[in-house]
């Protein structure tokens, strides 16, 4: 279990990184925290010709909030999202508040273990695109935008387009993911996250995230997002469950109905960790609990 040979470069600027990616194209693989890539290399399941290590690149580990959007630098480690803080324009650091401010730590504690969380990065997880990864589910559920740079260009890729299939994204070989933009979610949002895994810190068998926006006047759901991981090659949004929720008032019966809808509309593929039928059962349970958690958090 030793990796196959690879050439190695560790640029210290974004420009240098983009040059390397441009030069080596699909022979190259970006190494960020390495907590997913290196195990695959040790198994020789991943055999990049060239490793472009972005560990020395400055400027990719910032978090900032503006205009209702949180921008998370690609090299922000998971541990920092356990207590997310943003740098204000005046240079001071401030805890991220609001619904996203409490959702991120709730999700972060499911990501791997302490030694993984201090090395592994948010952007690395997104770019690795494991369909059961917590951050990928969050990105898909909240319609995040992935900011990709290439030599001479930048584009923002919506989550719906970003995740293509297992371990595969819309990033071109010469592109570098530099940041992810997340909606901060106003006080009228309620969000929840629930995950079922076999052991502490394992990847989810199934995980669900829900976020609903309530009409302040009526308390009815104006907008709903239900995302699940572990049921397809990418994290998926469940339109049927979302439609079930919209226009209704949160409550156990509604949550059960939405969860039932969710279980019906997924089309999981069974594997070692769970058959299709079992994953459907887990979708039902996780969606119901995420919704309940969100409703509970509202007080």
């Amino acid at each position: 279990m030793k990796p196959a040979r690879f050439a190695y470069t560790a640029p210290d600027t974004v420009e240098g990184t983009l040059d390397a990616l441009d030069r080596f194209g699909d022979e190259a693989k970006v190494l960020s925290g390495g907590q997913s890539l290196v195990p695959m290399m040790n198994f020789r399941l991943a055999r990049p010709e060239v490793i472009v290590d972005i560990g020395r690149v400055g400027g990719l580990d910032g978090m900032s909030a503006a205009n209702g959007t949180l921008t998370v630098g690609a090299r922000v480690i998971h541990a920092r999202l356990e207590a997310p803080a943003v740098i204000k324009p005046d240079g001071r650091s401030e805890s991220l508040g609001g619904v996203l401010g409490s959702l991120l730590p709730a999700v972060a504690r499911y990501v791997g273990h302490l030694p993984i969380r201090v090395r592994g990065t948010f952007g690395g997880s997104i770019a690795h695109a494991d369909p059961a990864a917590e951050w990928c589910i969050l990105a898909r559920t909240l319609d995040a935008e992935m900011v990709a740079l290439r030599r001479g260009g930048e584009r923002a890729i919506p989550a719906a387009d970003f995740f293509e299939t297992v371990f595969t994204t819309a990033l071109a070989p010469e592109e570098l993911l530099v940041a992810v933009r997340l909606p901060i979610l106003g006080d009228d949002w309620r969000a929840g996250f629930c995950e079922f895994s076999r052991r502490a810190g394992d990847f989810a068998v199934v995980a669900a995230m829900t976020a609903v926006r309530l009409e302040p006047a009526t308390g009815a759901i104006a907008e709903a997002r239900v995302g699940v991981g572990g049921v397809a090659g990418v994290p998926v949004r469940l339109g049927g469950a979302e439609a079930t929720l919209v226009g209704e008032t949160p409550g156990a019966e509604l949550h059960a109905a939405a969860a039932e809808m969710a279980a019906g509309e997924v089309d999981p593929v069974g594997d070692l960790h769970g058959s299709a039928a079992y994953r459907r059962d887990l979708v039902r349970a996780m969606v119901a609990r995420a919704l309940a958690q969100g409703a509970g958090a509202s007080g």
């Binding site: 190695y8 560790a10 190494l31 390495g34 907590q35 290196v38 195990p39 040790n42 490793i51 290590d53 560990g55 302490l114 030694p115 993984i116 201090v118 090395r119």
Partner: peptide, 13 residues
């Protein structure tokens, strides 16, 4: 100062 898995890091890093 941080606990890390040394099997998931390359010496050059």
């Amino acid at each position: 100062g941080e606990p890390v898995r040394s099997c998931l890091l390359f010496a050059v890093q």
